[in-house]
Amino acid sequence: MFIIFGTRGIKHTISESPVLMNSCPNCSNGSLVNKLYRRWFTLFFIPVIPLDVVDRFYECNNCKSAYNEKIKDILNQSQAVQENVQHQARYTYARALVAAMTHMSVIDGDFAAEEEREIMDAIEQFGDVKPELMQVMEQVKRDQNKDNFVFNLLNEARNELSAEAIMNILAQAGVVLLADGIIDKSEENLMKEYLIACGLPKDMYRTIIDKLQTKNIAEDEIEEVKPL
């Protein structure tokens, strides 16, 4: 009989922490719920023993934006300060996302047209900083991770954002790895290197794949009901 065991990160709501009502900087009317990621030992893929806490953060119950816990203090600042912090966090997120997506695309030596379209779609989401993101893409296409450029951007994002935001970055970046329908071992190892560069346990990889699969399922459902 084979025994299958491992670890995985599971998101929990911190029930004793007050909800920050109608305070999401992104959508304005969403409330921020305090959550944490805890690693669990799994047996036959079932979580059985709680392990260490990986990160605590706030998540909007409306738009699902995730914030470092310091957002609670920032919300007490002026509107101008809040907007500046939000803009900087968005810029940091975008740079890390484009760098990771591009690096994943060129790591096999073949920058496919489908992969470039995925990256350009991501860049268009941040139109106000599009020139800067285009520079990031071109630099990574040319130099890949020279001088740890990609890892440094991810680490910068981890210092400013939450673990949830980082895993959202890597899950969105992982879309380019599925261009051929599979993630091979070298691509899996690269994703784990990203996690380590962000100061996160490499076994959170499974959590990223869960996010990626959920995204793909949601897109499939949308495709099924799209009018002709």
Score class of each variant (00 low, 15 high):
M1C: 11
F2E: 14
I4R: 13
I4Q: 11
I4P: 01
I10G: 02
K11S: 14
K11Y: 08
E16H: 10
S17L: 01
S17N: 05
P18I: 06
V19E: 03
L20C: 06
L20Q: 04
C24A: 01
N29W: 10
S31N: 08
N34Y: 12
K35L: 10
W40K: 04
F41H: 04
F41T: 03
L43T: 07
F45R: 13
I49G: 07
L51W: 00
V53C: 06
D55V: 03
R56V: 10
C63M: 02
S65A: 14
E69A: 04
K70F: 07
K70V: 12
K72S: 12
L75M: 10
L75R: 03
V81Y: 10
N84E: 15
H87P: 00
H87Y: 15
A89R: 12
A89C: 11
Y91R: 13
Y93T: 04
R95A: 13
R95H: 13
L97Y: 05
L97C: 11
A99E: 06
M101H: 00
M104C: 14
I107G: 01
G109I: 07
D110P: 00
E114W: 02
E115Y: 02
R117Q: 15
E118S: 14
Q125A: 13
F126P: 02
D128V: 07
P131R: 01
M134V: 14
E138R: 14
Q139W: 10
K141C: 03
R142G: 00
R142A: 12
D143K: 13
N145S: 06
D147P: 00
D147G: 05
V150T: 04
N152R: 12
L153A: 02
L154W: 02
E156P: 02
A157S: 06
A157W: 06
E160M: 13
A163M: 09
M167N: 05
L170E: 01
Q172W: 05
V175I: 13
A179R: 10
D180N: 12
I182D: 15
I183A: 08
K185S: 11
S186W: 06
S186G: 09
E187A: 04
E188P: 01
E188T: 09
E193D: 15
L195E: 00
I196H: 07
I196K: 11
P201A: 09
P201Q: 04
K202F: 08
R206C: 02
T207A: 05
K211G: 08
Q213Y: 03
N216S: 15
I222R: 15
E224T: 07
L228M: 12
